[in-house]
Protein backbone atom coordinates (compact mmCIF):
# COMPACT_ATOMS: atom_id res chain seq x y z
CA UNK A 1 0.00 0.00 0.00
CA UNK A 2 1.47 3.41 -0.92
CA UNK A 3 2.39 5.54 2.10
CA UNK A 4 -0.10 8.28 1.13
CA UNK A 5 -3.01 5.87 1.37
CA UNK A 6 -2.01 4.29 4.67
CA UNK A 7 -1.51 7.78 6.16
CA UNK A 8 -4.94 8.91 4.95
CA UNK A 9 -6.58 5.77 6.30
CA UNK A 10 -5.02 6.52 9.67
CA UNK A 11 -6.27 10.12 9.66
CA UNK A 12 -9.77 9.18 8.54
CA UNK A 13 -9.94 6.44 11.16
CA UNK A 14 -8.95 8.99 13.80
CA UNK A 15 -11.62 11.44 12.63
CA UNK A 16 -14.19 8.65 12.58
CA UNK A 17 -13.37 7.50 16.10
CA UNK A 18 -13.38 11.10 17.35
CA UNK A 19 -16.81 11.64 15.76
CA UNK A 20 -18.31 8.52 17.30
CA UNK A 21 -16.79 9.34 20.69
CA UNK A 22 -18.14 12.91 20.55
CA UNK A 23 -21.57 11.63 19.63
CA UNK A 24 -21.57 9.21 22.51
CA UNK A 25 -20.41 11.88 24.93
CA UNK A 26 -22.63 14.75 23.74
CA UNK A 27 -25.88 12.82 23.30
CA UNK A 28 -28.39 14.02 25.91
CA UNK A 29 -29.12 11.54 28.67
CA UNK A 30 -32.81 11.02 28.08
CA UNK A 31 -32.55 11.07 24.29
CA UNK A 32 -34.26 8.10 22.67
CA UNK A 33 -36.12 7.12 25.81
CA UNK A 34 -39.46 7.06 23.94
CA UNK A 35 -38.46 8.03 20.42
CA UNK A 36 -36.16 10.35 18.55
CA UNK A 37 -36.37 13.14 21.14
CA UNK A 38 -35.33 13.94 24.70
CA UNK A 39 -37.57 12.03 27.07
CA UNK A 40 -37.28 14.82 29.60
CA UNK A 41 -39.11 17.15 27.19
CA UNK A 42 -42.23 15.06 27.72
CA UNK A 43 -42.23 15.47 31.50
CA UNK A 44 -41.37 19.16 31.09
CA UNK A 45 -44.44 19.55 28.90
CA UNK A 46 -46.67 17.82 31.45
CA UNK A 47 -45.48 19.86 34.42
CA UNK A 48 -46.13 23.26 32.89
CA UNK A 49 -48.66 25.18 34.97
CA UNK A 50 -52.01 26.06 33.36
CA UNK A 51 -52.98 29.67 32.63
CA UNK A 52 -56.70 29.03 32.52
CA UNK A 53 -58.77 27.87 35.48
CA UNK A 54 -62.21 26.26 35.65
CA UNK A 55 -65.13 28.65 35.87
CA UNK A 56 -66.09 27.21 39.23
CA UNK A 57 -62.84 28.55 40.70
CA UNK A 58 -63.85 32.10 39.74
CA UNK A 59 -67.27 31.56 41.32
CA UNK A 60 -65.72 30.67 44.69
CA UNK A 61 -65.01 34.34 45.37
CA UNK A 62 -67.04 36.28 42.82
CA UNK A 63 -70.40 34.85 43.93
CA UNK A 64 -72.52 37.82 42.92
CA UNK A 65 -71.26 37.94 39.33
CA UNK A 66 -71.39 34.16 39.04
CA UNK A 67 -75.02 34.07 40.13
CA UNK A 68 -75.95 36.85 37.70
CA UNK A 69 -74.07 35.13 34.92
CA UNK A 70 -75.49 31.66 35.45
CA UNK A 71 -79.05 33.00 35.26
CA UNK A 72 -78.64 34.35 31.73
CA UNK A 73 -77.71 33.27 28.21
CA UNK A 74 -74.01 33.66 28.95
CA UNK A 75 -74.09 30.84 31.49
CA UNK A 76 -71.85 28.68 29.32
CA UNK A 77 -69.39 31.46 28.57
CA UNK A 78 -66.23 31.25 30.62
CA UNK A 79 -65.29 34.34 32.64
CA UNK A 80 -61.85 34.20 31.06
CA UNK A 81 -63.20 34.79 27.54
CA UNK A 82 -63.59 38.46 28.39
CA UNK A 83 -61.41 38.83 31.48
CA UNK A 84 -58.29 36.95 30.36
CA UNK A 85 -56.47 33.99 31.89
CA UNK A 86 -57.08 33.69 35.62
CA UNK A 87 -54.54 31.27 37.07
CA UNK A 88 -52.24 33.95 38.49
CA UNK A 89 -55.12 35.83 40.08
CA UNK A 90 -56.62 32.64 41.51
CA UNK A 91 -53.29 31.68 43.05
CA UNK A 92 -52.84 35.09 44.68
CA UNK A 93 -56.00 37.27 44.62
CA UNK A 94 -53.89 40.33 45.44
CA UNK A 95 -52.29 40.32 41.98
CA UNK A 96 -54.60 41.85 39.45
CA UNK A 97 -53.79 40.80 35.94
CA UNK A 98 -57.50 40.42 35.25
CA UNK A 99 -58.66 42.53 32.35
CA UNK A 100 -61.55 44.92 32.61
CA UNK A 101 -62.62 44.54 28.99
CA UNK A 102 -63.49 47.32 26.61
CA UNK A 103 -67.21 46.65 26.47
CA UNK A 104 -68.40 47.31 22.91
CA UNK A 105 -65.30 45.89 21.22
CA UNK A 106 -65.49 42.71 23.31
CA UNK A 107 -69.21 42.18 22.63
CA UNK A 108 -68.76 42.76 18.91
CA UNK A 109 -66.21 39.98 18.68
CA UNK A 110 -69.03 37.47 18.99
CA UNK A 111 -72.20 39.41 18.22
CA UNK A 112 -71.32 41.55 15.20
CA UNK A 113 -73.33 40.13 12.28
CA UNK A 114 -71.21 37.85 10.06
CA UNK A 115 -72.30 35.57 7.26
CA UNK A 116 -70.36 32.65 8.71
CA UNK A 117 -72.20 32.72 12.04
CA UNK A 118 -75.15 30.34 12.51
CA UNK A 119 -78.49 31.99 11.79
CA UNK A 120 -79.86 31.22 15.24
CA UNK A 121 -76.95 32.93 16.99
CA UNK A 122 -77.84 36.45 18.25
CA UNK A 123 -76.13 38.90 15.93
CA UNK A 124 -76.55 42.61 15.42
CA UNK A 125 -75.04 45.34 13.35
CA UNK A 126 -73.52 47.22 16.26
CA UNK A 127 -73.22 50.56 14.50
CA UNK A 128 -76.97 50.58 13.71
CA UNK A 129 -78.15 48.85 16.87
CA UNK A 130 -76.42 50.99 19.47
CA UNK A 131 -75.85 54.23 17.56
CA UNK A 132 -72.53 54.73 19.26
CA UNK A 133 -73.71 54.01 22.78
CA UNK A 134 -71.66 51.38 24.64
CA UNK A 135 -73.49 48.05 25.08
CA UNK A 136 -73.55 48.29 28.86
CA UNK A 137 -75.59 51.50 28.85
CA UNK A 138 -78.62 49.25 28.27
CA UNK A 139 -77.48 45.64 28.86
CA UNK A 140 -76.17 44.08 32.05
CA UNK A 141 -72.94 42.60 30.79
CA UNK A 142 -72.87 39.52 32.98
CA UNK A 143 -76.45 38.69 32.04
CA UNK A 144 -77.25 40.53 28.80
CA UNK A 145 -80.90 39.46 28.67
CA UNK A 146 -81.53 41.83 31.59
CA UNK A 147 -81.68 45.47 30.64
CA UNK A 148 -81.08 48.44 32.84
Amino acid sequence: MPPQVSRLILIFAFIGVAFVATRWWARPDTFGQYGHYRGIALSNAITRSPHYIPKSTCAECHEEEAALNSAGPHKNVSCQICHGAGAVHAEDPQTSNIKKPEVTATCSRCHEARAARPANFPQINIAEHAEGEPCNSCHVVHNPSETK
Partner: peptide, 9 residues
Protein backbone atom coordinates in the same frame (compact mmCIF):
# COMPACT_ATOMS: atom_id res chain seq x y z
CA UNK B 1 -25.90 23.44 15.70
CA UNK B 2 -23.95 20.39 16.98
CA UNK B 3 -27.26 18.67 17.71
CA UNK B 4 -27.63 18.05 13.97
CA UNK B 5 -24.47 15.93 14.04
CA UNK B 6 -25.06 14.27 17.40
CA UNK B 7 -28.72 13.36 17.05
CA UNK B 8 -29.54 13.60 13.34
CA UNK B 9 -33.12 12.75 12.50
Amino acid sequence: FWEILVTPH
